[in-house]
Protein backbone atom coordinates (compact mmCIF):
# COMPACT_ATOMS: atom_id res chain seq x y z
CA UNK A 1 0.00 0.00 0.00
CA UNK A 2 2.04 2.95 -1.17
CA UNK A 3 -0.33 5.77 -1.73
CA UNK A 4 -3.10 5.03 0.70
CA UNK A 5 -2.30 4.03 4.22
CA UNK A 6 -4.91 2.18 6.13
CA UNK A 7 -4.32 -0.33 8.87
CA UNK A 8 -6.22 -3.13 10.49
CA UNK A 9 -8.13 -1.06 13.02
CA UNK A 10 -9.86 0.99 10.31
CA UNK A 11 -12.54 -1.65 10.02
CA UNK A 12 -14.28 -0.59 13.21
CA UNK A 13 -14.20 3.08 12.30
CA UNK A 14 -15.58 2.24 8.87
CA UNK A 15 -18.60 0.66 10.49
CA UNK A 16 -19.22 3.51 12.88
CA UNK A 17 -18.79 6.08 10.12
CA UNK A 18 -21.17 4.22 7.90
CA UNK A 19 -23.69 4.13 10.71
CA UNK A 20 -23.26 7.81 11.43
CA UNK A 21 -23.68 8.70 7.80
CA UNK A 22 -26.65 6.51 7.12
CA UNK A 23 -28.21 7.79 10.34
CA UNK A 24 -27.68 11.26 9.06
CA UNK A 25 -29.25 10.33 5.76
CA UNK A 26 -32.36 9.08 7.48
CA UNK A 27 -32.91 12.27 9.43
CA UNK A 28 -31.88 14.70 6.72
CA UNK A 29 -35.06 14.66 4.66
CA UNK A 30 -36.92 16.00 7.66
CA UNK A 31 -34.72 19.11 7.67
CA UNK A 32 -35.46 19.85 4.07
CA UNK A 33 -38.08 22.42 4.88
CA UNK A 34 -39.87 23.70 7.95
CA UNK A 35 -42.49 21.22 9.21
CA UNK A 36 -45.26 23.56 8.14
CA UNK A 37 -44.12 23.45 4.52
CA UNK A 38 -45.20 20.90 1.99
CA UNK A 39 -47.57 18.06 2.40
CA UNK A 40 -48.45 16.17 5.55
CA UNK A 41 -45.46 14.11 6.63
CA UNK A 42 -47.74 11.64 8.39
CA UNK A 43 -48.80 10.43 4.98
CA UNK A 44 -45.26 9.31 4.33
CA UNK A 45 -45.10 7.33 7.53
CA UNK A 46 -48.49 5.86 6.74
CA UNK A 47 -47.02 4.60 3.49
CA UNK A 48 -44.06 3.14 5.25
CA UNK A 49 -46.09 0.89 7.53
CA UNK A 50 -48.16 -0.60 4.74
CA UNK A 51 -46.45 -3.91 4.19
CA UNK A 52 -47.38 -4.49 0.57
CA UNK A 53 -46.43 -1.09 -0.88
CA UNK A 54 -42.94 0.35 -0.72
CA UNK A 55 -42.56 3.92 0.61
CA UNK A 56 -42.94 6.52 -2.06
CA UNK A 57 -39.85 8.67 -2.52
CA UNK A 58 -41.12 10.87 -5.31
CA UNK A 59 -44.64 11.78 -6.18
CA UNK A 60 -45.28 13.71 -9.38
CA UNK A 61 -48.60 15.24 -10.28
CA UNK A 62 -49.19 16.94 -13.60
CA UNK A 63 -45.56 17.99 -13.91
CA UNK A 64 -44.92 20.48 -16.73
CA UNK A 65 -41.49 21.60 -17.89
CA UNK A 66 -40.84 24.57 -20.12
CA UNK A 67 -37.64 25.77 -21.75
CA UNK A 68 -38.45 29.40 -22.36
CA UNK A 69 -41.71 29.31 -24.29
CA UNK A 70 -41.23 25.71 -25.40
CA UNK A 71 -43.43 23.26 -23.53
CA UNK A 72 -40.86 20.45 -23.29
CA UNK A 73 -42.75 17.93 -21.17
CA UNK A 74 -46.39 17.88 -20.16
CA UNK A 75 -48.61 16.19 -17.61
CA UNK A 76 -46.26 13.70 -16.00
CA UNK A 77 -47.83 11.97 -13.01
CA UNK A 78 -46.02 9.10 -11.37
CA UNK A 79 -44.62 7.73 -8.14
CA UNK A 80 -41.08 6.47 -7.55
CA UNK A 81 -40.70 3.94 -4.78
CA UNK A 82 -37.81 3.40 -2.40
CA UNK A 83 -35.11 0.81 -3.15
CA UNK A 84 -36.38 0.18 -6.62
CA UNK A 85 -34.80 0.83 -9.96
CA UNK A 86 -37.13 2.92 -12.06
CA UNK A 87 -36.24 3.12 -15.74
CA UNK A 88 -37.29 5.86 -18.15
CA UNK A 89 -37.39 4.72 -21.77
CA UNK A 90 -38.63 6.31 -24.94
CA UNK A 91 -37.48 7.81 -28.24
CA UNK A 92 -35.10 10.76 -28.46
CA UNK A 93 -36.54 14.10 -27.46
CA UNK A 94 -39.35 12.61 -25.41
CA UNK A 95 -38.30 14.39 -22.23
CA UNK A 96 -36.99 11.51 -20.12
CA UNK A 97 -33.77 13.31 -19.26
CA UNK A 98 -35.64 16.56 -18.71
CA UNK A 99 -37.91 14.92 -16.15
CA UNK A 100 -34.95 13.19 -14.50
CA UNK A 101 -33.14 16.50 -14.14
CA UNK A 102 -36.15 17.95 -12.37
CA UNK A 103 -35.74 15.39 -9.59
CA UNK A 104 -32.67 17.11 -8.16
CA UNK A 105 -33.36 20.52 -9.65
CA UNK A 106 -30.48 20.32 -12.09
CA UNK A 107 -32.68 22.12 -14.60
CA UNK A 108 -32.21 25.19 -12.40
CA UNK A 109 -28.78 25.49 -14.01
CA UNK A 110 -30.32 25.87 -17.46
CA UNK A 111 -31.37 29.42 -18.23
CA UNK A 112 -35.06 29.65 -19.06
CA UNK A 113 -36.06 26.26 -17.65
CA UNK A 114 -39.31 26.40 -15.67
CA UNK A 115 -41.31 23.74 -13.85
CA UNK A 116 -45.02 23.67 -12.97
CA UNK A 117 -47.11 21.10 -11.21
CA UNK A 118 -46.09 19.03 -8.20
CA UNK A 119 -42.82 17.19 -7.71
CA UNK A 120 -42.84 15.99 -4.10
CA UNK A 121 -39.91 14.32 -2.36
CA UNK A 122 -41.12 12.58 0.79
CA UNK A 123 -44.13 14.85 0.65
CA UNK A 124 -42.18 18.08 0.30
CA UNK A 125 -42.64 20.03 -2.92
CA UNK A 126 -39.11 20.37 -4.29
CA UNK A 127 -40.08 23.47 -6.21
CA UNK A 128 -41.60 25.38 -3.32
CA UNK A 129 -39.91 28.66 -2.53
CA UNK A 130 -38.28 27.65 0.76
CA UNK A 131 -36.51 24.57 -0.61
CA UNK A 132 -32.81 25.07 -1.16
CA UNK A 133 -31.66 23.24 -4.32
CA UNK A 134 -28.22 22.64 -2.79
CA UNK A 135 -29.83 20.66 0.04
CA UNK A 136 -31.91 18.75 -2.48
CA UNK A 137 -28.82 17.70 -4.41
CA UNK A 138 -27.09 16.47 -1.26
CA UNK A 139 -29.86 13.90 -0.89
CA UNK A 140 -30.44 13.17 -4.55
CA UNK A 141 -27.23 12.46 -6.43
CA UNK A 142 -26.70 12.18 -10.14
CA UNK A 143 -24.55 10.24 -12.59
CA UNK A 144 -24.29 11.79 -16.02
CA UNK A 145 -24.34 10.44 -19.55
CA UNK A 146 -20.70 11.23 -20.20
CA UNK A 147 -18.29 10.27 -17.41
CA UNK A 148 -17.27 13.61 -15.91
CA UNK A 149 -14.63 13.07 -13.24
CA UNK A 150 -12.95 16.21 -11.94
CA UNK A 151 -9.41 16.78 -13.22
CA UNK A 152 -8.12 15.67 -9.84
CA UNK A 153 -6.81 12.44 -8.36
CA UNK A 154 -9.05 9.40 -7.90
CA UNK A 155 -9.02 9.98 -4.16
CA UNK A 156 -9.88 13.67 -4.45
CA UNK A 157 -12.78 12.90 -6.80
CA UNK A 158 -14.46 10.64 -4.25
CA UNK A 159 -13.52 12.82 -1.26
CA UNK A 160 -14.89 15.94 -2.96
CA UNK A 161 -18.51 15.56 -1.84
CA UNK A 162 -17.73 14.60 1.78
CA UNK A 163 -15.27 17.51 2.01
CA UNK A 164 -17.94 19.91 0.74
CA UNK A 165 -20.29 18.46 3.36
CA UNK A 166 -17.74 19.47 6.00
CA UNK A 167 -15.82 16.27 6.74
CA UNK A 168 -12.20 17.22 7.34
CA UNK A 169 -10.63 14.34 9.23
CA UNK A 170 -8.22 12.38 7.04
CA UNK A 171 -9.10 8.99 8.58
CA UNK A 172 -12.80 9.60 8.08
CA UNK A 173 -12.29 10.66 4.49
CA UNK A 174 -10.08 7.63 3.87
CA UNK A 175 -12.86 5.38 5.13
CA UNK A 176 -15.50 7.02 2.99
CA UNK A 177 -13.31 6.85 -0.10
CA UNK A 178 -12.60 3.16 0.41
CA UNK A 179 -16.20 2.29 1.18
CA UNK A 180 -17.50 4.25 -1.82
CA UNK A 181 -14.97 2.71 -4.20
CA UNK A 182 -15.83 -0.74 -2.89
CA UNK A 183 -19.51 -0.02 -3.43
CA UNK A 184 -18.76 1.11 -6.96
CA UNK A 185 -16.79 -2.12 -7.60
CA UNK A 186 -13.69 -0.09 -8.33
CA UNK A 187 -11.60 -0.47 -5.18
CA UNK A 188 -9.58 -3.49 -6.27
CA UNK A 189 -8.61 -1.82 -9.55
CA UNK A 190 -7.50 1.50 -8.13
CA UNK A 191 -6.48 0.95 -4.53
CA UNK A 192 -2.79 1.23 -5.39
CA UNK A 193 -3.10 4.40 -7.42
CA UNK A 194 -5.53 6.58 -5.53
CA UNK A 195 -3.29 9.60 -6.08
CA UNK A 196 -3.25 9.10 -9.86
CA UNK A 197 -5.32 11.40 -12.06
CA UNK A 198 -8.86 10.24 -12.67
CA UNK A 199 -8.52 11.34 -16.29
CA UNK A 200 -6.12 8.47 -16.95
CA UNK A 201 -8.79 5.82 -16.32
CA UNK A 202 -10.83 4.04 -18.97
CA UNK A 203 -14.34 5.27 -19.73
CA UNK A 204 -15.97 2.47 -17.76
CA UNK A 205 -13.72 3.07 -14.77
CA UNK A 206 -14.42 6.79 -14.96
CA UNK A 207 -18.14 6.15 -14.91
CA UNK A 208 -17.81 3.84 -11.89
CA UNK A 209 -15.71 6.54 -10.26
CA UNK A 210 -18.56 8.98 -10.87
CA UNK A 211 -20.90 6.49 -9.20
CA UNK A 212 -18.48 6.20 -6.27
CA UNK A 213 -18.38 9.98 -6.08
CA UNK A 214 -22.18 10.15 -5.98
CA UNK A 215 -22.37 7.35 -3.39
CA UNK A 216 -19.76 9.01 -1.17
CA UNK A 217 -22.17 11.66 0.10
CA UNK A 218 -24.69 8.94 1.10
CA UNK A 219 -27.62 10.23 -0.93
CA UNK A 220 -30.97 8.55 -0.71
CA UNK A 221 -31.58 8.62 -4.45
CA UNK A 222 -29.18 8.27 -7.37
CA UNK A 223 -30.34 9.59 -10.72
CA UNK A 224 -28.57 8.09 -13.72
CA UNK A 225 -28.82 9.80 -17.09
CA UNK A 226 -27.95 7.16 -19.71
CA UNK A 227 -24.92 6.11 -17.65
CA UNK A 228 -23.81 3.43 -20.11
CA UNK A 229 -24.34 5.15 -23.44
CA UNK A 230 -20.63 5.99 -23.77
CA UNK A 231 -19.43 2.56 -22.64
CA UNK A 232 -18.68 -0.77 -24.29
CA UNK A 233 -20.82 -3.87 -23.51
CA UNK A 234 -18.47 -5.23 -20.84
CA UNK A 235 -18.30 -1.93 -18.94
CA UNK A 236 -22.06 -1.63 -19.37
CA UNK A 237 -22.68 -5.00 -17.82
CA UNK A 238 -20.46 -4.12 -14.85
CA UNK A 239 -22.45 -0.94 -14.26
CA UNK A 240 -25.71 -2.88 -14.51
CA UNK A 241 -24.49 -5.40 -11.92
CA UNK A 242 -23.48 -2.46 -9.79
CA UNK A 243 -26.93 -0.92 -10.01
CA UNK A 244 -28.53 -4.15 -8.82
CA UNK A 245 -26.16 -4.17 -5.83
CA UNK A 246 -26.75 -0.52 -4.98
CA UNK A 247 -30.49 -1.02 -5.08
CA UNK A 248 -30.61 -2.32 -1.51
CA UNK A 249 -29.23 0.95 -0.22
CA UNK A 250 -30.36 3.54 -2.73
CA UNK A 251 -33.37 4.39 -4.82
CA UNK A 252 -32.28 4.55 -8.45
CA UNK A 253 -33.90 6.28 -11.38
CA UNK A 254 -32.23 5.58 -14.72
CA UNK A 255 -32.78 7.03 -18.15
CA UNK A 256 -31.79 4.63 -20.90
CA UNK A 257 -31.99 4.32 -24.65
CA UNK A 258 -31.31 0.65 -24.33
CA UNK A 259 -34.55 -1.30 -23.83
CA UNK A 260 -32.70 -4.48 -22.96
CA UNK A 261 -30.97 -2.56 -20.20
CA UNK A 262 -34.30 -1.40 -18.81
CA UNK A 263 -35.60 -4.97 -19.00
CA UNK A 264 -32.49 -6.34 -17.28
CA UNK A 265 -32.16 -3.97 -14.35
CA UNK A 266 -35.36 -2.12 -13.63
CA UNK A 267 -38.31 -2.97 -11.41
CA UNK A 268 -40.59 -0.35 -12.87
CA UNK A 269 -40.46 1.17 -16.34
CA UNK A 270 -41.92 4.44 -17.51
CA UNK A 271 -42.38 4.86 -21.23
CA UNK A 272 -42.30 8.39 -22.63
CA UNK A 273 -43.19 9.52 -26.10
CA UNK A 274 -43.46 12.73 -28.05
CA UNK A 275 -46.20 14.59 -29.76
CA UNK A 276 -45.58 17.12 -32.49
CA UNK A 277 -47.12 20.49 -31.74
CA UNK A 278 -49.46 21.68 -34.46
CA UNK A 279 -47.95 25.20 -34.40
CA UNK A 280 -44.28 24.43 -34.92
CA UNK A 281 -41.70 21.72 -35.12
CA UNK A 282 -40.81 21.71 -31.43
CA UNK A 283 -42.03 18.56 -29.77
CA UNK A 284 -43.55 18.00 -26.37
CA UNK A 285 -42.78 14.90 -24.37
CA UNK A 286 -45.30 13.04 -22.29
CA UNK A 287 -45.52 9.97 -20.12
CA UNK A 288 -47.42 7.25 -21.96
CA UNK A 289 -47.39 4.42 -19.50
CA UNK A 290 -45.73 3.37 -16.30
CA UNK A 291 -45.89 -0.18 -14.95
CA UNK A 292 -43.77 -2.96 -13.47
CA UNK A 293 -41.07 -3.81 -15.99
CA UNK A 294 -42.35 -7.35 -16.56
CA UNK A 295 -45.74 -6.01 -17.56
CA UNK A 296 -44.36 -3.28 -19.83
CA UNK A 297 -42.27 -5.74 -21.78
CA UNK A 298 -44.66 -8.67 -21.84
CA UNK A 299 -48.05 -7.08 -21.81
CA UNK A 300 -48.03 -3.32 -22.47
CA UNK A 301 -51.41 -1.72 -22.09
CA UNK A 302 -50.74 1.06 -24.56
CA UNK A 303 -50.49 0.53 -28.30
CA UNK A 304 -47.61 3.03 -28.57
CA UNK A 305 -45.58 1.19 -25.93
CA UNK A 306 -46.11 -2.08 -27.72
CA UNK A 307 -44.91 -0.57 -31.00
CA UNK A 308 -41.84 0.95 -29.34
CA UNK A 309 -40.67 -2.11 -27.47
CA UNK A 310 -41.21 -4.33 -30.49
CA UNK A 311 -39.03 -1.98 -32.53
CA UNK A 312 -41.66 -0.62 -34.86
CA UNK A 313 -40.87 3.01 -34.07
CA UNK A 314 -38.42 5.14 -32.09
Amino acid sequence: MTTYDHNDDTQTTTDSTAAAISGEAVTMPMQLAPPSAGIDSAERQGNAVEPESLPKVFNLEELQVYYGSHHAVRDVSMAVCANQITAFIGPSGCGKTTVLRCFNRMNDLIAGARVEGLLAYHGVDLYSAEVNPVEVRRRIGMVFQKPNPFPKSIYENVAYGPRIAGIKKKSELDDIVERSLVQAALWEEVKNRLKASALGMSGGQQQRLCIARAVAVSPEVILMDEPCSALDPIATSRIEDLMLELKSEFTIVIVTHNMQQAARVSDVTAFYSTEVNPDGDLRTGLLVEMAPTVDIFSNPSDELTEQYISGRFG
Partner: peptide, 13 residues
Amino acid sequence: PDNLREASAALGT
Protein backbone atom coordinates in the same frame (compact mmCIF):
# COMPACT_ATOMS: atom_id res chain seq x y z
CA PRO B 1 -16.59 22.15 -19.48
CA ASP B 2 -20.05 22.65 -18.02
CA ASN B 3 -20.29 19.00 -17.06
CA LEU B 4 -17.71 19.63 -14.32
CA ARG B 5 -19.94 22.35 -12.90
CA GLU B 6 -22.92 19.98 -13.12
CA ALA B 7 -20.98 17.17 -11.44
CA SER B 8 -20.09 19.46 -8.58
CA ALA B 9 -23.60 20.90 -8.28
CA ALA B 10 -25.09 17.40 -8.26
CA LEU B 11 -23.11 16.67 -5.09
CA GLY B 12 -24.84 19.51 -3.30
CA THR B 13 -22.28 22.26 -3.77
